[in-house]
Simulated assay, not measured.
Amino acid sequence: MMAVQYYEGVGRRKEATARVRVMSGSGRFVINEKPLEVYFPRLGDVDSILRPLAVTGYDRAGFDITVKVEGGGVTGQADAVRLGLARALAKMNPELVQMLRREGLLTRDPRVKERKKPGLKRARKAPTYTKR
């Protein structure tokens, strides 16, 4: 059996990591063995994830996309998948890099949870001040 040619991109956001593989196919989009719409039922997540395809003008039907995503929450995972998809498309066709970069799809979001500081309840939330 011949190995299937695929392009891989790794996306990260907050604590989430997504490994995205793009190969030619019939339009299947599978995340952790589940269809995209089942894994991300929240409104807007699917559109956000498919944005790299929309920007580059590729039709989803031309590709099979498989994703392994772990860690983080829903938003972090969705954004990690989007970055991984954009990177895989950029690897597949280097001419798309400029277009994806202009839309901000190849930039990793550096915001992560700030560490908790001593004497505070969270990173910045101070305990309630009481005069007496």
Rank of each mutant, 00 (worst) to 15 (best):
T17H: 05
E70D: 12
F29G: 00
V22D: 01
Q5E: 14
G71I: 03
A90Q: 00
V20R: 02
E114K: 10
A88R: 00
G76M: 03
A54G: 02
R19K: 13
M1L: 10
R28Y: 09
A16W: 03
L53F: 15
Y58N: 07
L100P: 03
G44M: 08
E37W: 02
E70N: 12
L105A: 08
G62V: 06
E70V: 00
S26N: 14
G72W: 08
D64I: 05
T56A: 12
V67K: 05
R28T: 08
P41M: 01
V55E: 12
V67R: 04
V4K: 13
P110L: 05
G72K: 06
T128M: 10
L89R: 03
Y6S: 15
P35R: 14
K125T: 13
T17F: 01
G104R: 10
G84C: 08
V22Q: 07
K116R: 15
P118M: 08
V46T: 13
A88G: 07
G9I: 09
A3I: 12
I49M: 12
Y6N: 07
T75Q: 08
A90H: 00
D79E: 15
R132E: 10
P52L: 09
N32Q: 10
G57P: 12
D47H: 10
T128E: 14
V81N: 00
L105Q: 07
D109I: 04
F29A: 02
K34F: 05
D59S: 14
R60N: 03
L105D: 04
R12E: 13
Q77E: 14
A18G: 08
R122F: 03
N93V: 11
K91N: 14
R42H: 09
G104H: 09
K117A: 12
A86C: 08
G84V: 03
E114P: 02
K14P: 00
G11P: 09
A123K: 06
G27S: 11
Q5Y: 03
A54K: 14
R124V: 04
Y6E: 13
Q98K: 15
T107M: 07
R124N: 14
L83T: 04
R51C: 07
V38N: 06
R28S: 13
G44N: 10
E114M: 05
R132P: 00
S24G: 06
V81L: 08
L83C: 05
M99P: 00
K117C: 02
V4C: 05
A16V: 03
V69W: 02
V20T: 10
R111G: 02
Q98W: 04
Y7G: 01
A78L: 01
V22M: 11
G84I: 00
K116Y: 01
T17G: 00
L100W: 07
L120R: 15
V69E: 06
E8A: 14
A54H: 14
M2L: 11
V81S: 01
A18H: 05
T56P: 03
R132C: 07
V22S: 04
E37N: 12
L89G: 05
P127C: 11
L106M: 06
L50C: 12
D47S: 14
L36E: 02
K117M: 10
V46A: 04
M92F: 13
G11E: 06
K68C: 04
K68F: 05
A61G: 05
V112G: 12
M92N: 02
M1G: 14
T66G: 11
L89F: 09
K14D: 11
Y39A: 01
V67D: 03
